[in-house]
Write a protein that binds this DNA or RNA. Structure first.
Length: 316
DNA sequence: AATACGGGGGA
DNA sequence: TCCCCAGTATT
């Protein structure tokens, strides 16, 4: 799950393990298949890391998942939390998890004043959890403390009245529940402006995979002209990027969609889709793009934003 | 140490 | 509109 609610990921989980029931199946899959199953869930690096790690297990660990915490921690996409969870559940390793639930509970219980997203705050909380940890059944402890956070010590309106720790909880005893956990304020929201080109050329369209270290890495999309600001359509058409893409090919701008506002945690993407018809009869492939049947776009993993447009326009 | 990375659902 | 989620990798 990693920063995603279980309720949001459950359906994806079942679809994932149905398609890739074991490590060797996942390792043998194409990256595209893996991304397609992940489409819409977000944090796509997780999918690539799972795929990558499956191959690592097959190739470097003889297909046997390591049982040692430090060895598990080396695997790509597995950090301290996942390593602690996996090693404690699967191998009874004595490592405490520190997910959002645990952080919240400890923060309230002891009134941790340092921000929980600072390294100092994490260290303080980690020390508390290590002390609390039931050494004889670390798996039970980890599952219990996470569930306790999810069911009782919840982010909003925690069940303090019936909480078994309300006689020792710093936040509750001082009537300062709202103040914990302390968090530094989130990064500022930034806007980006995407102009996607829904190109129609004799039943074909053009797509490209995003490969930069950027949002939606390894997902597919239409030709994109990103602008620094909210530009007029005519200015986009007059831009260098447009000229380079079409390279003198005869086109008509058939229409422009309304603005698609894609609101993410730290990004506000204002997107619009420009329908362009290519008049040329000759097969034309702009540099770096792939030419596919327009309706085949549904077979490619795409972002939530692209999927929305496709559903509304292409599949309609 | 700070920042990037998605999307959904509750308040 | 804001918060926050079974966090990790990169800068």
């Amino acid at each position: 799950m990693q920063q995603t609610r279980v309720s949001q990921g459950t359906d994806y989980y079942y679809r994932f393990i149905e398609k890739f029931p074991d490590i060797s199946t996942l390792a043998a899959a194409s990256e595209e298949e893996v991304m397609k199953v992940w489409q819409g869930l977000g944090y796509y690096t997780r999918a690539r890391n799972l795929h990558h790690t499956a191959k690592t297990i097959i190739n470097e660990y003889s297909g046997i998942f390591p049982s040692d915490y430090d060895e598990i921690l080396k695997l790509k996409g597995i950090g301290p939390n996942t390593a602690a969870a996996v090693s404690s559940f699967a191998f009874k390793t004595n490592k405490p998890v520190m997910d959002g639930n645990v952080v919240r509970i400890v923060s309230r219980l002891f009134g941790v004043l340092h921000s929980v997203n600072s390294s100092v705050g994490r260290t303080i909380i980690s020390n508390y959890v290590s002390q609390l940890m039931n050494q004889s059944s670390p798996d039970m402890f980890n599952q219990a403390i996470m569930d306790f956070g999810a069911l009782c010590c919840t982010p909003s309106k925690p069940g303090c009245k019936h909480c078994p720790f309300n006689r020792v909880c710093y936040a509750y005893l001082h009537d300062r529940i709202e103040e914990f956990p302390v968090r530094k304020k989130k990064t500022e929201m930034k806007s980006r402006f995407f102009n996607y080109l829904d190109i129609r050329s004799q039943g074909f369209t053009y797509i490209k995979k995003r490969t930069n270290n950027d949002i939606w890495k390894n997902l597919y999309e239409y030709p994109l002209i990103e602008t620094k600001s909210d530009m007029l359509l005519q200015d986009v058409i007059a831009s260098d990027a447009w000229a380079i893409l079409f390279n003198g090919i005869d086109t008509d701008v058939y229409g422009i969609s309304s603005e698609y506002l894609h609101q993410l945690t730290h990004r506000r993407i204002k997107a619009r889709f420009i329908r362009v018809v290519v008049n040329s009869q000759q097969a034309w492939i702009p540099v770096d793009y792939t030419r596919i049947k327009s309706e085949d776009i549904i077979n490619y993993p795409v972002s939530g934003l692209m999927a929305k447009y496709i559903k509304e326009v292409v599949s309609a």
